[in-house]
Amino acid sequence: MLIGISLISFFIMHLAPGDITASESAFNPKASEESRQKLRALYNLDKPLITQYGLWLKRIVKLDFGNSFASHQRPVLWETKDDKGNVTKGMIQDALPITLMINLIGLIIIFVLSIFLGVVSAVNQNRWPDRLITVIVFIGFAIPGFWLALLLMYWTGVTHSWLPISGLHSAGYEKMGQIAQYLDLFKHLILPVFVSSLGGLASISLYVRNGMLDVLQQEFITTARAKGLTENKVVYGHALRNTLLPLITIVGLSIPGLIGGSVIGESIFAISGMGKLFFDAVLMRDFPVVMGILTIGSVLTLFGNLIADIGYAWADPRIRRGITN
């Protein structure tokens, strides 16, 4: 499976015109075509595609993600040490933690808030809280992220200096104490996390709301109500659990997304995360980096499916029955 995905990705990647030599020095009259040919040979870009893929596969099974084609030649995945003990950090190693942190916090916020908003909407179907929530989440979804980000940066950073404008650390970060460092990081994360989560609220809260409405009409809810359970127990105990089912698919779908960041968001907040890393690598045709990120992405996709399947079984005993039948 993974081999199939990587093979297809590899070929599609090479179908797109251009290679690293087109982006680096293509338009510098001082750079000669011979030196570009030399580079191509150095990176095996002159070999047939299938040979290139074979070489890549041979490395990747040993978990060797290789080095970037860019002139810094940094390792794609993890740090290496030269014989003098100088450590060069891996590109994914640098970018992944920060993206993962923002996305995880964002995902938790999105889910918690969405479930809350969705349930409130469903319980108050077609009354004003429902309408208000719908309008708010849609504004959040449709508002251009860059616009909101710059507006908030201006308001909280320039007019009021409540929050830092961009980056992840303040100028004197190294000299701060442990707690001050955490607080500093926290302050830098507020806006990026807020802006990146806002867009996700709409879809999930709508799924919850509509799913909840479906469930609330089913017989077992009527039964539960007839049994004399309190409305809260009916809603949160019985209905919510059944609503969460399709949500598990979404959680599964979100797992590969955890390592992807938004290019625009990361550029605006000057956070060097995975989104910008991938985008730049694509534009530069830095193939090892692209393939490295794609490989990790596919592994996570498969992993996400597993989670989703397990989650189903947990949430809905009928499926367990269905699958084992």
Binding site: M1, I5, S9, I12, M13, L15, V282
Partner: peptide, 22 residues
């Protein structure tokens, strides 16, 4: 079908589009 979906999800749309442009 689902493996096909996984494959499609893993393929970089961006490159697909670049290839299509050509």
């Amino acid at each position: 079908i689902m493996r096909f979906v996984d494959t499609m999800l893993s393929i970089p749309t961006f490159f697909l589009i670049l290839a299509v442009i050509a």
